[in-house]
Design a binder for these strands. Structure first.
Length: 591
DNA sequence: GCCGTTTTCGGCCCGACTGTTTTCAGTCG
């Protein structure tokens, strides 16, 4: 784990400890913010400590800075250690249990001596929680269920698995009587790589009283396994497979506000609501309101009041009323997008249709399922101008990598297809392994025979940062290398991949004219959004490819595009939006 | 704990739902 991530974990733990101890909530919020910040920093925090620029990072104050400096210099922080040792270690992981929060954990500890999830499980089974204030039969049951869900590996599921489930449910919701329109919100709308739950917002006409019926009908869908909650405006269920799905029902005039609110992210919304306050307004799931009117009415009724909203019908209205451009959901992570929107400088994000060809694909020659012709025909059907055939190199024995002899024959076969087939340029290339020390799997005398070269790490993905960084640098330096494929080799939920110091690699790649791939194949999505964002900032070109091993794999392109969009990429940042002539200019300028 | 062209002190986002409550605390997103 990188130092940034280690520190992020440290601050996360510290925040949890403070919550359990019941310290001022804003302290733990501040530490949570520092944790998130560190996890997303595109550079090594060590550098900021050394050159003093840590002072300029908003969110890191005096206390956090001391903790970070201590850890950088000595490997540990006395402040954090004493905080951690002030409560039993096992209490912190209990925070992961759904429906169990800091207050209850603290009570369980003080009144029943429970200090970890195991003891809690035993206490429930033995009926030792009875008689505790606020813990009735149902609450205990929901804690029990929460533990089961957590230990079953519960939590987030992959984007690729959530998409079809959500699509089906959306269709069913739209078909319900009284529903005027419905859309998916939440992290799925933001295309996060993993999804905690699916959020669906449904609009009913302003005069409709069908909220309850719709809510009820939703909980009766055939794929619903369990109903977690059901109200007039909101229902939560678990569908088969354990995924939580929330439905919110709002009058149509509040649809935009509800979509904005439930799309999140939470951090984006918190910042936005702070901004609304600065402007004398308040923003909630019902709309944007003038604070004076809203407060006055709320004091009278004690409830969210029915005063006219400044904006609520569409998201565009809300952002506009706050003085900014509408922000694409993929950017709503509080990573600077609100400042951009206020300055009217929101990037015109790349879309799937901008892509003119795929530069990473496999055939039967190595470990693909289809022939060169089949892949080319599929690419034509997608409207592509070009397709790069990039089978594996000789070290990928498991993937039937090509020996030099087989490669030369394969190149001939590709060129034969290229000459014959109309309507697409088929490029003869290869996905060449970047070996452990950064040398490539073929010598230059072979590489120069290829139209271009994509070089990727496949094995030895547990190197230390220095070795991993040098490995990629050496590949970037090769005069024939044009693209670094899936630069870290990570697989979502399976392995972390190489701990590359990307600041260094990106600087070199920008200078050398080497593109970095966003591999759209699940579960790679590599580079990820944060690294791709840093690449763009460093002036590096990206290449979004599917790494297709069969013609159906081309369909995964939207996943890669979503990563590019989350990184703030425009078409001009991605080489395979170029027409064929411009692309070849890019690919040959190093030679 | 962090922040500041209204503030170095006094703020800091907001509502729904649940359960166990006779008016609210805890949790969640």
């Amino acid at each position: 784990m990188s130092l940034n991530n280690e520190l992020a974990e440290l601050f996360k733990t510290a925040a949890a400890v403070m919550e359990i101890k019941g310290e001022a909530v804003f302290k733990s919020i501040a530490f949570s913010k520092v944790a998130r910040l560190l996890g997303e920093l595109p550079f090594d925090i060590r550098k900021s400590v050394e050159d003093g620029s840590i002072d300029t990072i908003t969110g890191i104050g005096k206390s956090s800075r001391k903790i970070i400096e201590d850890v950088v210099r000595t490997g540990t922080s006395a402040d954090i250690e004493s905080l951690k040792s002030s409560i039993p270690e096992g209490l912190v992981p209990m925070m992961q249990i759904p429906s169990l929060g800091p207050k209850t954990i603290s009570m369980l500890w003080k009144q029943r001596g429970i200090t970890n999830i195991g003891e809690l499980t035993v206490a429930i089974v033995e009926g030792k929680l009875e008689g505790l204030k606020g813990l009735g039969e149902k609450k205990i049951q929901s804690i029990k269920d929460g533990i089961t869900m957590l230990t079953a590996g519960g939590g987030r599921i992959g984007l690729i698995n959530a998409l079809p489930i959500a699509e089906k449910l959306l269709e069913q919701v739209r078909a319900l009587k009284g529903v005027e329109r419905a859309e998916v919100a939440g992290s799925l709308r933001r295309w996060r790589e993993t999804i905690g739950d699916v959020d669906i917002v449904a609009a009913v006409s302003a005069t409709s009283t069908r909220g309850h019926d719709i809510s009820r009908a939703f909980t009766k869908f055939p794929q619903v396994g369990r109903v977690l909650g059901q109200g007039e405006t909101k229902s939560s269920v678990l569908v088969d497979g354990g995924l939580q799905v929330d439905l919110r029902i709002v009058p149509e005039e509040h649809f935009g506000a509800a979509m904005q609110y439930f799309t999140g992210s939470k951090e984006h919304n918190v910042t936005l609501r702070g901004l609304a306050q600065d402007k004398g307004m308040t923003l909630n799931e019902w709309g944007l309101y003038k604070l004076t009117e809203y407060d006055k009415a709320k004091k009278l009724t004690g409830k969210p009041p029915a005063v006219p909203a400044v904006a609520s019908r569409s998201e565009e209205d809300i952002y506009e009323a706050l003085g900014m451009d509408w922000i694409p959901p993929e950017l709503r992570e509080d990573r600077g997008e609100i400042a951009l929107a206020t300055a009217h400088k929101v990037p015109k994000l790349i879309v799937v249709k901008d892509i003119r060809g795929d530069l990473h694909s496999h055939t039967k020659a190595s470990d693909g399922d289809s022939t060169i012709e089949q892949m080319a025909e599929a690419a034509i059907a997608l409207g592509y101008e070009y397709l790069g055939i990039t089978d594996h190199s000789k070290s990928q024995v498991i993937a039937n990598g090509l020996s030099v002899e087989r490669l030369l024959k394969h190149l001939e076969a590709i060129r034969k297809v290229a000459a014959k087939i109309k309507g697409i340029k088929v490029l003869a290339s290869c996905e060449v392994d970047i070996l452990t020390d950064g040398t490539l799997d073929y010598g230059d005398e072979i590489l120069k025979e290829l139209d271009y070269v994509i070089a990727s790490p496949h094995a030895s993905l547990k190197q230390d940062p220095k070795k991993a960084t040098d490995r990629l640098l050496r590949a970037v330096d090769n005069r024939y290398v044009n693209i670094i494929g899936h630069p870290t080799g990570r697989k979502i939920d399976k392995r972390g991949g190489l701990p590359v110091e990307f600041e260094t690699v990106f600087a070199r790649a920008a200078k050398a004219g080497v593109a970095m791939e966003i591999n759209a194949g699940w579960p790679r999505l590599d580079l990820n959004d944060v690294n791709a964002r840093a690449a763009i900032a460093a002036g590096v070109m990206l290449s979004v490819n599917t790494d297709a091993h069969s013609i159906s794999d081309f369909e995964q392109l939207p996943l890669g595009i979503s990563v590019a969009r989350r990184a703030g990429a425009e078409a001009k940042n991605v080489i395979n939006t170029l027409d064929h002539t411009s692309l070849m200019k890019f690919l040959t300028r190093k030679r």
